[in-house]
Design a protein around this nucleic acid. Structure first.
Lengths: 193, 193
DNA sequence: AAGTTTGTAAAGTTAAAACTGTACAAAATA
DNA sequence: TATTTTGTACAGTTTTAACTTTACAAACTT
């Protein structure tokens, strides 16, 4: 945090305090997403650092081991919340935040949910097929057929939800969600960027 | 599972197998939401049980302690995924699933996120105020002002995201989200229920 | 009122995860 | 080529969360 050195102790303390509150808030927010508080703090600290950081730097400011920084950075990279960048003379890896929170939110959902939803849908389809096979096999067993109907209907409901969720994720990825929920509040002109 | 007794061993096994796959899939799905796998399985089992269940029943089918069932049921109730219902003669508490997955999804987000987003926004506003106070206090300190500008801008970006998220949650709760992402796939008539 | 049954709090135990320290491969430097 | 630096795999430790056992209050039964 070299750029802070020009300030007085008092000023540094005040700026640090205001930042710290935000950093902790970021941590709590990411905790909601199932990300560790520590990794949330890591992101928060990087968010306020105006230049790319190294593992050693963050290890120092976070008071945690370099190994933890390494794994934390990888987690954040997997979630596309930070990027590894190439720095001039330094042979250390440099990381910088992707400050676009909307995009972070979208990437998080896409990455973490799409795969699971697809796997779950497959499992449901498999069970659905088994039920249909049973229906032909035991076509004369009235009480069983009634039971199979119930189960099939339940699985169908679940599948219909998964399909909807997938379409929701699609709308996140395509940006179509912003047609319904604009980024800027209504009445404000959206600037080109 | 009294209604299964009428079936042959073979039939019970097959039905159980098809169900088990779905139950585990449900568990994995809820795991994504940050709900324990066990509690996910509990919901899954209840989902296929056509009648309200008691703690003792679920304790037996899950092979877990009654206390765990008690806490699990409370968690699911907090998330509005199950209801406590009044049963005829039984003096045991009876629980039944809310089978509406769309509604479960929405309740989950509303309950778990709204509170946190509001708390985080408050924290950010507090820091924003501090920064603005500093700006007047050190109005002649050019490099500090530049720094404060940067921080304020970052906090503003974060706040704008939180506001968007709140509007997204609102659209879930109001059902407005279904205008953009209909429950049924497009082209299919929606039946009244 | 005395005796059961039921649900859950509290304490204790077990399982899982987060985190650290060591060790080492890969790349850079001399 | 030998030496240093850097990132991370791996094993070990600590912390946290899940789960169980015990204990007991509240409600119900007789």
């Amino acid at each position: 945090m070299k750029y802070l050195e020009a300030l007085t102790e008092e000023q540094q303390r005040k700026v640090g305090q205001a930042r710290q509150r935000v950093i902790e808030s970021i941590g709590k927010n990411m905790d909601l997403y199932g990300i560790t508080l520590s990794i949330g703090h890591l992101y928060g600290n990087m968010y306020f650092n105006n230049a790319p950081v190294t593992l050693d730097e963050m290890s120092a400011t976070m008071g945690m081991s370099k190994t933890s920084m390494s794994t934390g950075m990888r987690t954040l990279m997997d979630l596309k919340m930070i990027n590894k960048v190439w720095g001039k003379g330094s042979r250390k890896d440099l990381y910088e935040v992707v400050p676009d929170w909307h995009q972070n939110f979208i990437d998080y959902f896409s990455i973490r949910w799409r795969k699971a939803v697809e796997a779950n849908s497959n499992a449901l389809h498999k069970s659905l097929k088994e039920i249909r096979d049973m229906r032909t096999e035991y076509a004369d067993n009235e009480p069983l057929l009634a039971l199979l109907d119930q189960d099939e209907s339940k699985i169908h409901d679940a599948l219909s939800y998964y399909k909807w969720l997938l379409r929701l994720i699609d709308s996140f990825e395509s940006g179509k969600i912003y047609e319904l929920i604009p980024m800027e509040e209504t009445g404000v002109n959206i600037k080109e960027q």
